[in-house]
Structure formats: structure tokens, C-alpha cells
Design a protein around this nucleic acid. Sequence first.
RNA 1: GGGUGGUUAGCUCAGUUGGUUAGAGCGUUCGCCUCACACGCGAAAGGUCACAGGUUCGAAUCCUGUACUACCCACCA
Length: 731
Amino acid sequence: MAEGMDEKFKKPYDPQATEGRIYEAWEKSGYFNPDNLPGDRTESFTVTLPPPNVTGVLHLGHAYEDSLQDSVVRYQRMRGKKALWVPGTDSAAIATQARVEKDIQKNEGKNRHEIGREELVKRVAAFAKQSESTILNQVRRMGASLDWSRYAYTLDEPRNKAVMTAFKRMYDAGLVYRGNRIVNWDPKGQTTISDDEIAHEERAAKLYTFRYSKDFPIPVATTRLETKVGDVAVAVHPDDPRYKEFIGKTYDVTFCDVPLSIKVVGDQAANPEFGTGAVGVTPAHSMTDWDIAERNNLPKDRIVINEYAKMTAPGRVNGLKTTEARETVAEWLRAEGLMEKEEDITQNVSIAERTGGIVEPLPKLQWFVGVDKPFTLAHSEIPGIESGSTLTLKELMRKAVEAGGVSMPQDGFRSAYFHWIDNLHDWCISRQIWFGHRIPVWYKGDDVHVGEAPTGEGWEQDADVFDTWFSSQLWTFSTLGWPDETADLKTFHPTSFMSPAYEILFLWVSRMILASGFLLGEVPFKTVMIHGLVRDKQGRKFSKSLNNGIDPIEVIEKYGADALRMGLIVGTPLGADIKFDEQKVKAYKLFANKLWNVSRFIFENTAGADVNAPLTEADTARETRVTEVLADVTKDFDEYRLYLASDKLYHYVWDELADKILEDSKKIFGTHDTPSTESAEVIASRKALLLQTLDAMLRALHPFMPFVTEEIWQSMPTKDADFLMVAKWPV
RNA sequence: GGGUGGUUAGCUCAGUUGGUUAGAGCGUUCGCCUCACACGCGAAAGGUCACAGGUUCGAAUCCUGUACUACCCACCA
């Protein structure tokens, strides 16, 4: 060991002075890029980073995700794989645009229409750019061994090409269509959203029971009185003896100043047990009612609420907000003596997740992905699906997991996935915002052109952009150059491992399977391990309103990235939520220091020793024990039990190597007061054992604690690679 | 309404296919600056493994039920 190295170990381990320097050296080495890795590597191992949104800064959820994936990638790299971890960021269309619009409104008092489409998109892009560099630097602080040369952004040129190509192919296959259907409208965000972007919130509501007029034979119960001015029918169960005789009859009434023509229809959707057993049917403003109207040939164009959730029906409700109109209608009913009952109930309200707006179902002309439409998959490498077979996207998504092409070892999540597929409706992919991939469709009169911009006069492009998940679904292969048939695509796809939070199992994971299946005939990844959420100490989600956020960078500055990584990984089975505990991180900071001091002891006592000296019987037993631990840890790694692997290494190093072997070694080596009485062979054996064991532990711990292990490695006499990062796994 | 998890020491959690006195970190108590480490060492206290049954030679671990709790899904207005 060089003299200068000695000094370093005489002080406690200092992550702050070490981590930045090490990361820089790694980056400079080029080893994050699998093309530069030493040795003969044939098998690839690919992970795609779930791209963080460019809106924000790194939070503990990212930190956890980065820790897990980096550990897996580092392990596979050390196992001799062509390891690739692809970095990227997500434009997060709605979220980002909303954020910038809010800023502009606040600082300049202007809305997006006053700013204009072109200018707004420019501003949003500028914001995204700035936010991007912040978050990428934070990801580096975690020690993430991402191949920055393959960095991708969901809105960059290559990804745009991928999105356009994907849409065109799906259009040509008849899997996307434009249709006038009832969609989830977010009045706050002024856009449609998909079913999966809706959250349900329980709220107190009133259930009103009323009649449309004095001579209307059936009382009806509803919570949304204001929509009743848009009713076209009353649905009752076909077998309900109370109402059977009225089915087929039509009644003309004037309801709260609005003339209505209400037909009584028999439909299975009406539940005789609930309310009065009769449903007022408002096709334009309720998903259920839309379906009832479809089944019973009722008019669906009676729109009484607009995009701003204001009443467009004539009479006294005109121009009111829906909530105001509700009370207006209630007053009218009471005055007319038509209100029969008012009850307090709790009700699930649909909320737009991104904006918090109350979702208003509205009929709209939108683009959809048809999930029940059969198509022929010409080429398939997906287990369970043969080339040339005909199936629907739903079936494709199901089979890819069912037959094991995508392994989803967590039973709970797998059954949730299947359940989601079974309830899946066509996916609305057009959004009425400006920041995102613009839909590549042009209209001229009745002519529709899909694909590249058409030549000639008079064509007008669709004003909408794609749902952000429409581009995200291509992520595992758009990042590798698709639609071009690149070498990367051939080498690294399907990817090996994906580890997203359970929050985006449906939004993202399922759609990647859809897209990769349809467009490539491949699965996007072979194994998906869903991880849980990081919560605060009380188990609450981190949120701005609670102001309980914890900045991972601050944690890193206090304890080091290695400690944070261990604190998040150890003892957290995949899929379980973490209640973040700073004390736990602190414990692993102490562990890094322990490892540091173990190294110091070993360096001080083994100078010039022969690493391969023959071992005594006792030391052979110690060595066997190390081999056992390593075998165990390797198995855990292969089965993605990182939470156990890390824990076992921690305990081996502390409880056995430090507490037992080092203490025992002091006796063997002797001290100033009590010189050694052991033979030269015994001493040589012990020195070899110490070096071998430390060497093995540094290698095995490296995926979890890359910085401190790398720093010690640089002083190791057993060093056989310029960086521990590319050294061999010790099994 | 349907589904999926969780319930183990004061706190946060492990315990991989059932097998000797149930573990860790933090916290608590006591003693130590012992020439790797006080970012440390040694020792100690602390648990009827939610509850009730069952299977088994043996159960925190498997089965049945109950309670509480968290989350997901759902067009009962």
C-alpha cells in the first residue's frame, strides 16, 4: 500500500469528499457504456430507467428506484454481462404544461390562449430543459451507473419519430380510430383523460328522489339533479313488477323550464334494489347512461353541460355552475311539490389525478385505441403467441404474462394486472393540450390523412396531442433506436428487468406490453418486479400540501449515497411500502465507516503479505463460511431478493469479519505488549484469509454501496481491474 | 360491492420451501477513549409473533374463520 493511502484511512470515511470524485472517474472510464466494457461479454442485460418527469426534482421514490436498479445493473455487470441501463426523462405533458401555465398566470396574468400555442410550447420546453439538468444531476448523486451516451427524452426527435410510426401502424391495422364517444373530461385541465388517470374520492352527497311532473308515474332517485334537464329516458329493470306496464311509453314534461320527452325503457343496468329502482337516463353526461342509450336506441346528443362545467340548458339553470344548478333544480322541485325525498349519502366522485378537477363525462370526437379489435400479429417471439395468429390487444397483454414471456413473480400484482385487463375499455389517446407529440392526422373536408404532413393546400392538422403514456409505452425500444433496425435494438431488446412503482402498473407496464407486442412481436422486458412507495414516518404519501417532503440530496449530504441506498433497500421486500426512517440511513453510514476501519486494520496488518498463502484448517473453515455467504447472496440477487442479500452482507462484515475474525487476528498477530506466539505459517494464513475475505466483501457489497467499496478497492493489493465496478463477481 | 396486502420488541421492519432458546436497526439501562473504528467495544432489559380454531412429532411460517388496517378496482344512479 502506498504511503499516501495510509493517511486516508486514519480518518473516518468521508462520503462527501469521496462520492463526487468517484462518480466522475467512473463516467470518465466509459464503463457505463456496455460497448466499452472489458473482457469478452456476449450476454446482454438491459434495464430501462422509468423516466422521471422533467417537472420536478428527485424525491425519495426516485432514490429508491435508482438504488434498486443500479444494484441489479452493477451486479450483472460484475457477472460479465453486457450491462446497459438506459437513462431518460419524461415530458409529462399535462403536468408540465399545467405547471408553466400556472407560473405565467401568476407572473404575467395571462392564460394560454393569450400566449398562443407556439409561444407556450416554447416556454414549456425551456422550463423542461432546465428542470431536466437538475434531476439528472441528482440521479448522478445516487451513484446510478447509467449510460449517459444513450440518454433519451420522450419529446426528442428520435422518440417523436417512434411515436408517429407507432400511431401510423396502429391506424393502418385498424387499432386506432376516431370516434364520437363519451369521454372523461377534466374541466380544470380542459382536456380529456383516460380511465386510469382518474382517482375516486368519497364525498358527502344528497340523494334526491323526485318526479319529472305531477303525472309522471315513476319516481326517480339521483345525486346529480342538474343533469336531469338532459334526460331522455327512465330505465327500469325489465322484470320489475312495479314499472313493467310503463315500459315503452313516452311522457312529455316541462322540467325546470326545460321541455323533456322521457321514454320509459327496460334495461338490465337498473337495479330494483337501489333508490326507487328507476334511473333517469342522461346519455351525454354519464358513462352508464350512454351505454343504456346505446342499447335502447335513445338520442345521445342532448348536451346540457359544457367544457367549463356550466349549464347550457335553457331556462333558469342556464349559465350556472353544475353545483349551483343542482340547488336551483332542487328548489324548483320543492316548490312544485315534486321532491319526494332528500337523503344524505356518501358517494364516490371522480377526480382528475393531475389537476384535482371533478371529471365531467362528455361526448367528444376523440382518438381511441381499440383493445377488443382483432388483428393479425405477423411476427411474434412472445411465448404463447404464434406468428400469424389473430388476437386482440387485450388478449395480447394477457397472454404475454400468462405464458411467462413477461415474468411477474409477485402474485398479487399479477392478478391485479389480469383484473385490470378484464375491465379495460378503449383507450382515449388524444389530449386537448399543446405540449406533447401532436397527432399526425390532417383533415381537408371529409378527407383524412395520417402520417407525414401532406402536400397541397387546405390541410389542417389535428389540434390535439397524444396522451403522454402513448409515447411512454414505446420507451423500452424507442430508446434503442426503433423504428430503425439498430444494432442496439437487436442486442438489448427485449430488456431484462423493469422495476416500476405499483402506481404505474396499469398506466405504463401494461401499455409497454401492448406496444412492444404489437409493434415488435416481442415482450418489452422479461421480468418485472413492482416496488412499493416511499412514505413518511407516519406512512403518509409525500405531498406538497402536507409539506412532509424529504430531499434525498440533503440525506446524501448528511450520510452519503451509499448509506441512503442501503437504508432504502435493506429489509424492504419488493412491493412493500417504506416508511422512511432517517435513523436507518444513519446506521448504514456507520456501516460504511465500519467497513472502512476493517479495511484499515487489514491494510495495516498485511503489508506485503502473500494473498495466496496456504490456509490453516481453521482459516479454511472461515473461508468456507465466506463462500457460503456469497453463494447465498448470489442466489438472492438472481431472484431479486436484494433486501436479504444486502442484509446478509452487512451482518457478515460486522458480526463475523469485524467482531470475530479481526479480534481473533489480533491474538494471532500479537501486540506491542504481547508478541505473537504463532508460527509463520499461521500468520501468513491469516493474512491471506483477511485479504481474500475483504476482497470478496468489497465485490459483493459493491452493487449496494458502490462508492465506499470502490474507494477501498483502489487501495487493495488484490486489485485486478482498474475499477471495482468492472471487477468480477466473487463467485 | 369486488380484490390484494399488512397485523412479530417502545419505534421502523426482517424472518425465502414449517425444524434447535423468534432476529436487526434505532431507542432504553449498565460498564468501557482496550494500539481498526467512541461514526466504536462489551453486557443487559424488552415479544402469549392481532384473535379463535384446525393440520402436524413440530407453526410466526400451512388451512378455516374473526377483528383491525392500508391500498387497488368498480357505470348502483
